[in-house]
Write a protein that binds this DNA or RNA. Sequence first.
DNA 1: ATTACTACTCACCGAGTAA
DNA 2: TTTACTCGGTGAGTAGTAA
Lengths: 243, 243
Amino acid sequence: MGNIKIHGLRKEKRKFFFVLLRLAEMGAYQRSIKVSTFLLAEKIGLSQQTASRYLLDLQRLGWIERSITRNGGLIRITEAGRSVLREVFSRLSVILESKIPSSLMFEGVVFSGLGEGSYYVTREAYRRQFIEKLGFDPYPGTLNVKLLSEHDVKARAELDNYPAIEIEGFKDKDRTYGPVRCFRALINNEAEGAVVCALRSHYNSSVIEIISPFYLRGKLKLNDGSRVRVEVFPNIPSKKGET
Amino acid sequence: MGNIKIHGLRKEKRKFFFVLLRLAEMGAYQRSIKVSTFLLAEKIGLSQQTASRYLLDLQRLGWIERSITRNGGLIRITEAGRSVLREVFSRLSVILESKIPSSLMFEGVVFSGLGEGSYYVTREAYRRQFIEKLGFDPYPGTLNVKLLSEHDVKARAELDNYPAIEIEGFKDKDRTYGPVRCFRALINNEAEGAVVCALRSHYNSSVIEIISPFYLRGKLKLNDGSRVRVEVFPNIPSKKGET
DNA sequence: ATTACTACTCACCGAGTAA
DNA sequence: TTTACTCGGTGAGTAGTAA
């Protein structure tokens, strides 16, 4: 979730991305092109020897195909190589084209509430929706985090502007329960969960409440006063079709 | 033209691009975010010390702004930094979204024609259009290049499918002169010019004819039999609005 | 807790050169 | 002509640590 290592190739991507981009610009994205190591060296501003090694490495990685003749080899980018370029492109698209940041980082301190969290989370009508829309059955309780700095409080307020996973309100015979907005989150870079924002919260915006399939105080060894880092992903949608 | 060093920062871009991308994904593209060197280190998979140096370097480059407090600095990407990301994005767009390659590379051998090139280039109605649409007054003569390999001939044939800078045909009292398709080109990675493709050419598709503001045989020290490299840019439009 | 210095290691780049 | 090897210098990344 945001951090999972799909990439056992981080280092390689960093090293070879711009060379691959150059080759693509020379036409190797769609066709075979004739490139000598000397020509490539010129284009990337490095030596012929380095260009040669780069091509060998790219070949070993399976990002290009190559057939060497005596006056410069024929090169074309493979599907694997194309997907490297596409991946960077789509990461940039998200950043440049969407107004919604891919994640927001919060820092705060754990504190104990009065158990209201637990009460609400265990209401069956809420619980059913958490399971359906978030994909997990929440531990019966919330982790309350007090935001300390100005900066965090401002960022928290911004969350209100982003599209959330919406949990509908309901009534029972005694009272009404308001709608809740959720955002997927990662706590201490380790445990998945969600930030829940009740529209009529008993807390002000310097507090965030977190639910999770795990008992977070146990899993992350937290006590009152522990510092936690919460990364919120406003872009990750709910499991089942939601706006 | 394709190769001009707008970038005195090639090396820096290669080195810092992915770090900048990471920071952007963490939200620094639009807002200030709180990032400790330790957190950044985690995200990029390198040590805290390296992350610290990266941030210092990015700051010196003017790609980020930074204010250090005692629990992690506040960081935001500057306009200069954003433009680095946008540049890579647009280079990728060109490759991924257009069917037209940004350049095609040809290799061949210089040979002498019978002077017809010179005759056509100096027709006033052609010359006027070259000046208007290509932005240069061509040397009165063409450089003929014989393509030797199968691969080059195929690539030459592909040019017919790409949108060219169109030079209109005309009539004088004696005869008609056909339309001509031009593509901007770089000869031996050094001299600007254009490849001209007459629709009714006296040559077959294993030859390309080049015009240039320069006397290329002189400028590039070419003789009959010299090998030349011609890079053709099918995407660079004419000076004045042309389809 | 932070940031960032110094010192050290190792990987990378390029000169020379063989094939 | 090419490609790509070896090898030596340089610069990038990390451990230790001060502030």
